[in-house]
């Protein structure tokens, strides 16, 4: 019998979609900041001004969403918990990672069948979380440059002494491309698993529900 399981609680879904929106907006505005490909026809335009403004508004939104998600790592259910994101730390997780790897590389035929994240995806998410934090830290460090002694400059300014200001900029820029690469992988994998697992993976991030047969989980 299929069971309807409530897998992704609402804070997980909301932060997921806020993050997705923020990353799209931040990547588009960020790439424009990095390389302003459109030139304004007249000096009364405020193109870069608005683009930067939008970048910073979404930067704050993204940061708040990330903080909320990090808090939820400790109070959410087992699929939202931080434990789900470090599969390599548990023997069961290592086994699942290996299984998924074999499936992806066409070595193994049987699709991994799990309620929450598949172990390999979960490991990728911890890397992506780390990249998010890198973007937030380098982003706010760059943001603080307009005013030495400001809050952001005081807490993240020391990065410039360590990595130089162009180094911090380059990092912020390169990580953007890594996140674009991740987005491609993420959408593809979700689509693949939706088809192969047949348990409503894609719709689950909207509704929270997955359809599982407990028999198959054994």
């Amino acid at each position: 019998m299929l069971e309807i399981r409530y897998v992704w609680e609402w804070p997980v879904r909301i932060t997921h979609w806020i993050n997705a929106l923020c990353i799209v907006v931040l990547a588009v505005t960020g790439i424009y900041i990095g390389n302003p490909f459109l030139l304004a026809p007249s000096p009364d335009a405020f193109v870069m001004g608005w683009v930067r403004f939008i970048h910073y508004v979404f930067a704050y939104l993204f940061t708040v969403s990330m903080v909320a998600r990090i808090i939820w790592l400790f109070i959410g259910n087992q699929h939202a918990s931080w434990k789900a994101f470090v599969p390599w730390a548990f023997s069961k997780g290592r086994e699942n990672m290996w299984g998924t790897f074999k499936y992806y590389t066409f070595i193994e035929k049987k699709v991994p069948y799990v309620v929450g994240h598949n172990a390999l995806a979960a490991a990728a998410y911890s890397l992506v979380f780390a990249l998010f934090l890198v973007q937030i830290v380098t982003g706010f460090a760059l943001y603080g440059q307009y005013q030495p002694g400001s809050f952001w400059d005081v807490i993240f300014g020391p990065l410039f002494g360590l990595f130089s200001s162009p180094g911090v900029r380059l990092t912020h820029h390169v990580v953007t491309w890594l996140l674009i690469g991740f987005a491609i992988h993420h959408i593809y994998s979700a689509w693949l698993m939706d088809i192969k697992e047949k348990n409503g993976t894609l719709s689950s991030i909207f509704s929270g529900y997955k359809f599982m047969n407990p028999e198959d989980l054994k």
């Binding site: 049987k110 491609i184 593809y188 047949k198 047969n213």
Partner: peptide
């Protein structure tokens, strides 16, 4: 991933049940 997708789509018998 596109190539992987094509391969996966053509792959038979790996989907669940």
């Amino acid at each position: 991933f596109g190539a992987h997708g094509v391969a996966s789509a053509l792959r038979k018998g790996d989907a669940h049940e």
